[in-house]
Design a binder for these strands. Sequence first.
DNA 1: TGAATACTTAAGCATATGGTTGAGCTTTCG
DNA 2: CGAAAGCTCAACCATATGCTTAAGTATTCA
Lengths: 111, 111
Amino acid sequence: MVELSISLDRAFHALSDATRRGMLDRLSRGPASVSELARPYSSSLAAIHQHVHVLESSGLIVTEKHGRTRQCRLSPEAVLTVETWLSDRRRLWEDRFDHLGKLLETPEDQT
Amino acid sequence: MVELSISLDRAFHALSDATRRGMLDRLSRGPASVSELARPYSSSLAAIHQHVHVLESSGLIVTEKHGRTRQCRLSPEAVLTVETWLSDRRRLWEDRFDHLGKLLETPEDQT
DNA sequence: TGAATACTTAAGCATATGGTTGAGCTTTCG
DNA sequence: CGAAAGCTCAACCATATGCTTAAGTATTCA
């Protein structure tokens, strides 16, 4: 349980940054080196390397050193973990809202 | 697009803390006041209030002041947003893994 | 009215995050 | 071999986060 919390902490944290999400999108089109991941951004390579490290320690990606380059690729299991957490909750919540029905539709909520 | 990124930033950030996820779980069993949300935790009420603020500005919950208490409840739309983002990616990634199949498993001996 | 309740805000503090630059380490190639 | 490529590491810095305590505001109720 604590383990799960810790990995959810890291996974959600990793996902909370637009640069890292962009890197994940890039990786969804196939593995890439650190330099390739850095290409769309103006940050230094060192900064991108730090993002790679955050993504890897969250489990969202796995990397392997090949010669002088590091290949990064996605790890769908970790995504499944967070997605499962979310969809479990959403199911619960929707059940609740189904039960409550009209309560949600009260006009006071028009903010 | 920028808007979406910003709200994903906030939503994922809000989800990256175990206390806030616990508060969301509590809210999945129905609306609660700030004090009720604080009950399971040893932190000060002020700290919990800050968590409520993070959750609210992420859009994951909505709150309303009733007299001297503030009622908090879930906002399923925001959860749907982040869950959709995740499941879209997972679909992409799984497609990739399906297509590539063995390619991903090739032992890379470039030495 | 006056006390209790339930937040709310402010200030301060320790730690974390995300960026930089610059140096260093392998690996590759002419 | 020696230089370039590609990453890695270490400092350093600015800002953000999460917590505390203390004080302030608004409601409720005896």
